[in-house]
């Protein structure tokens, strides 16, 4: 399973793109241009590693709010993300009805998501059930934080996946906090993935800051799912180097030293170092990437700033679907 140089660089670019877009969102928030941002920073390796094991267009995704990098890999454009930050017309997930990062993208099989955590897990199981009933060899992936695995929805959804051997992969992105609450107050076990045994499915713990490690674990899970072997629970251990959202101040619940320590293990830094050590990322190429990303982010921001707000009338509805929406 040797990845080509092109693929490795594409992974790196995907991570960088998500990071720079994300950073810009924080800047826009500080400038008072947007009212809310919830970040995927620090989670890029977990998400890009997962995305590269999938087939966008064929596979299905039921994401959670930190899945920006995963969404970009599935085809969300920076412009579309910016439209959601600004709440502008034609925003792709909801027509700007929802807060930013409540992802959904019909054209890419990314199901609309809400705010109550873990509600998406039974949906993923239902999609897997549909795939199995139809004999579709696609897989469905769902993302969630470790704190949200305390919800009954998580248990009930994974239980279905296990009972029916559904082609479903649940990626728990364990960044060790649920807002302020550390994971040891969330569960009395060291690894969420240990719970896989109780469901009757394979579980894997992986370094979520190592994109290649995540990719390998995902490939196993995807192969298993596609060939009728059933679901997998993957836990990617990572860290959120920024506050929970633009409304949070993390100084009240963790030390600056802890954050600084984790920033040394930033997934983009790690992967950059790896590529450099293999002679795959000369400084000039990295500069090229940075320039390209900056242009994309600038363009997206300009586009969204210039875009109109939705007409008030678009809040009226429709509330009910008038025709069948079949996949």
């Amino acid at each position: 399973m040797e990845l080509s140089k092109e693929t490795l660089l594409a992974m790196y670019y995907a991570m960088l793109r998500s990071r720079r877009l994300d950073e810009r969102a924080w800047v826009l928030h500080r400038q008072g241009k947007i009212v809310f941002h919830i970040s995927g920073m620090g989670h890029e390796a977990a998400q890009v590693g997962a995305a590269f094991a999938l087939k966008p267009g064929k596979d299905w995704l039921v994401p959670y709010y930190r899945d920006l990098a995963l969404m970009l890999c599935f085809g969300l454009t920076p412009r579309e993300f910016m439209l959601s930050l600004f709440g502008k017309q034609s925003e792709a997930s909801s027509g700007a009805r929802q807060m930013p990062s409540h992802f959904g993208l019909r054209r890419a099989n990314v199901v609309s998501t809400s705010a109550p955590v873990a509600t998406q897990i039974p949906h993923a199981a239902g999609i897997g059930l549909g795939m199995k009933m139809r004999g579709d060899d696609a897989v469905v992936v769902t993302g969630i934080g470790e704190g949200s695995t305390s919800q009954g929805e998580w248990y009930e959804g994974l239980n279905w996946a296990a009972v029916h051997k559904l082609p479903m992969i649940c990626i728990v992105q364990n960044n060790q906090y649920a807002i302020s609450v550390p994971s040891h107050k969330q569960m009395a076990i060291p690894n969420v993935a240990d719970r896989a045994a109780a469901f009757g499915m394979p579980g894997a713990v992986v370094d979520g800051n190592d994109v290649l490690a995540v990719y390998r674990v995902m490939m196993d899970a995807v192969t298993r799912a596609r060939t009728g072997g059933g679901p997998t629970l993957i836990e990617a251990k990572t860290y959120r180097p920024v506050p929970h959202s633009s409304d949070d101040d993390d100084r009240s619940y963790r030390t600056r030293e802890e954050v600084a320590e984790w920033k040394k293990r930033d997934p983009i830094l790690l992967f950059k170092g790896y590529l450099e050590s293999k002679g795959r990322l000369p400084p000039a190429l990295n500069d090229d990437y940075e320039t390209r990303v900056l242009a994309e982010v600038d363009d997206a921001q300009k586009f969204a700033e210039a875009a109109p707000y939705p007409a008030i009338e678009s809040a009226f509805g429709p509330v009910y679907a008038a025709e069948a929406h079949h996949a």
């Binding site: 299905w60 039921v62 949906h123 993923a124 199981a125 239902g126 999609i127 897997g128 929805e153 996949a327």
Partner: peptide, 16 residues
């Protein structure tokens, strides 16, 4: 029960 409905929702968005 929540999974009876939640799994139903997933199946429905998938096209069932």
């Amino acid at each position: 029960e929540l999974s009876i409905v939640g799994v139903g929702i997933g199946a429905a968005v998938y096209g069932m």
